[in-house]
Computed example of a mutant assay.
Amino acid sequence: MDVADLTPAQARERFRGGERRPTAGWCRGWTQANLIAVPKALAYELLLFAHRNAQACPVLDVGEAGAFQTRLFPGDLRTDLPGYRVYRDGRPVADRDAVVAEWREDLVPFLIGCSFTFEQALLAEGVPVRHLEQGSNVPMYVTGVPCEPSGVLSGPLVVSMRPVPEPLVATAVEVSGRYPMVHGAPVHVGDPAELGIDDLARPDFGDPVEVRAGEVPVFWACGVTPQAAIMASGVDFAIGHLPGHMAIIDARDDDYRVT
């Protein structure tokens, strides 16, 4: 079966069974989300950080302390994503297929909106999505733009990039702007140096994509931003998704579309 035709439950079952790959293009019409789980003592500060940096960190759902399900994710957050990253003292110390052994009773899971949610809408309007064409992960970059801090949490904005033909940039802005709960309109169009990005061919997360003649790099706020804050702030322990390897939730893309 084409992964685009899977239901969220079918995709979660495949990840639980060991399939490991980025999720762009999976479960057409269903919403994907970033995972970040932090100790309960830090949960309020993360929630405030997300509120203050809402375009990068739009909160879709929050679980109870120790829970590995949420209202929108009825699977198991410890096993039903295709990849995880474990942080200790602000450093990524392990990438895991599952995090059953690492999951703690005080961890509060947050599900953060993902720009994969509006990619089908872009395609429907004729806007190409290069990483889907290439069958690769979306490129993501740590910028020089600081987020607004909250308590001990601070760090840089992370962005995803999609090259867009210049005549379609306005369309890409308008279409993605209909989805404010999953990052919405771009934060920057054009010169990556203005964001402090030195080389598009060397993303910090994900894979590089081809930028063709006549195309403009377009940058959206990215839900990996909380993981960048975990690293910048030296947080003692956290678990996130492996960038681009998302939680597929029981909500439809159109649930987050506004008119």
Rank of each mutant, 00 (worst) to 15 (best):
V175A: 04
V209G: 09
W220V: 02
D207F: 14
V189T: 03
E210K: 15
E174L: 12
A185H: 04
C222P: 02
D207P: 11
T225L: 00
D207G: 12
P180C: 07
C222N: 05
T171E: 04
G190K: 05
P208N: 15
F205A: 10
P217M: 09
A201E: 15
P192V: 10
T225F: 00
F219S: 03
R202Q: 12
G184Y: 01
E174S: 10
D207A: 15
D204I: 13
A201N: 15
E210M: 13
A185T: 04
G184L: 01
D199C: 10
T171F: 06
G196P: 06
A201P: 09
G214E: 14
V187L: 03
L200G: 03
E210H: 14
R202I: 11
D198V: 13
I197W: 07
D204A: 14
E215G: 08
P180N: 11
V187N: 05
P217V: 09
A193V: 10
A213Y: 12
V182T: 15
V209K: 06
P192E: 09
V216H: 09
E194G: 13
V175L: 05
F219H: 06
P203K: 08
Q227E: 04
G223L: 01
D198E: 15
P192C: 13
Y179M: 03
V187P: 02
S176W: 02
D198C: 12
T225Q: 00
W220E: 02
V173S: 00
G223S: 02
